[in-house]
């Protein structure tokens, strides 16, 4: 059963179509990158996949059920989402934030269970930030904070992990670390989809790519076909020999 099945997804904010008749499917173990110029609808697509943005036509199925028929609590067990901007005005510790990944696991009247605490510790260990558990998240570097929010998403133990620009504000070392982590999660049979700004990063473990172009145009397929310089040059409006495109 696919972790995510999208069919005929069409959406617009009013003017021209942002997404037109988008269809693709992710299975456990897939690691998909979403590429495209600014304003092509990458972030909107992710939020349509979680149902945070509603409206538009077509269907999004998560774990076999249509997204419209899934309540917030069950949804959080099917899909976890890491936003591009991960700030909070309050000084939560890294571990407190990761524990919040367990929000949907029991009623709000109850505290976190022993299983919740274990899941949080597992997520901290898996993302390699167990040593930061007690630190205030606002005292961490951007890269470390990104890992905290990925750990929070992992603690949700969802089958599908969506990330909006997880590498954008990071230095090269953290870019590689985050991509390596996501690839390892995919190898563990999670389905992962990440919006990326640099096509070259897709070489670090992605097996599928979704290219969003202008006015709703899109293409989806294996990375080897999607990352051809000619195709990327057309999507981004660059000359084919641009040094920005992966060889």
């Amino acid at each position: 059963m696919p972790a995510l099945k999208v069919a005929g997804l069409t959406f617009s904010y009013g003017a021209g179509p942002l997404l037109r008749d988008v269809a693709f499917e992710l299975r456990p173990g897939d690691f998909m990158c979403v590429l495209g110029p600014n304003g092509s609808g990458k972030s909107t697509l992710l939020k349509l996949l979680t149902g945070f943005i509603k409206g538009g036509a077509g269907s999004v199925c998560l774990g076999g059920g249509d997204i419209g028929s899934i309540d917030a609590r069950r949804l959080a067990r099917l899909v976890a989402y890491v936003p591009s901007e991960t700030t909070t005005p309050y000084d939560f510790s890294a571990r407190e934030l990761v524990l919040m990944g367990r929000t949907a696991r029991s009623g709000f009247w109850r505290g976190y269970s022993a299983a919740d605490e274990e899941a949080a510790d597992r997520a901290l260990a898996e993302t390699g930030i167990a040593h930061l558990a007690g630190r205030s998240v606002n005292s961490l570097s951007t890269g470390e904070r990104q890992l905290v929010f990925i750990a929070q998403a992992l603690a949700q133990e969802a089958k599908l992990l969506l990330l909006d620009e997880p590498t954008s504000h990071l230095d090269l070392k953290y870019k590689a670390a985050v991509m390596g982590l996501l690839a390892a999660l995919a190898a563990r049979k999670l389905a992962v989809a990440a919006v990326l700004h640099e096509p070259a990063l897709a070489r670090l473990g992605c097996n599928k790519a979704l290219l969003l172009g202008r006015e709703g145009a899109y293409s989806f397929g294996p990375v080897s076909e999607m990352l051809l310089p000619a195709r990327l040059a057309a999507v981004y409006g660059l000359p084919e020999n641009s040094p920005l495109l992966p060889k």
């Binding site: 939020k47 917030a72 959080a76 929000t103 709000f108």
Partner: peptide, 9 residues
């Protein structure tokens, strides 16, 4: 936005 994705309405 984050609350929604954590499972709170």
């Amino acid at each position: 936005e984050k609350a929604y994705h954590l499972g709170a309405d």
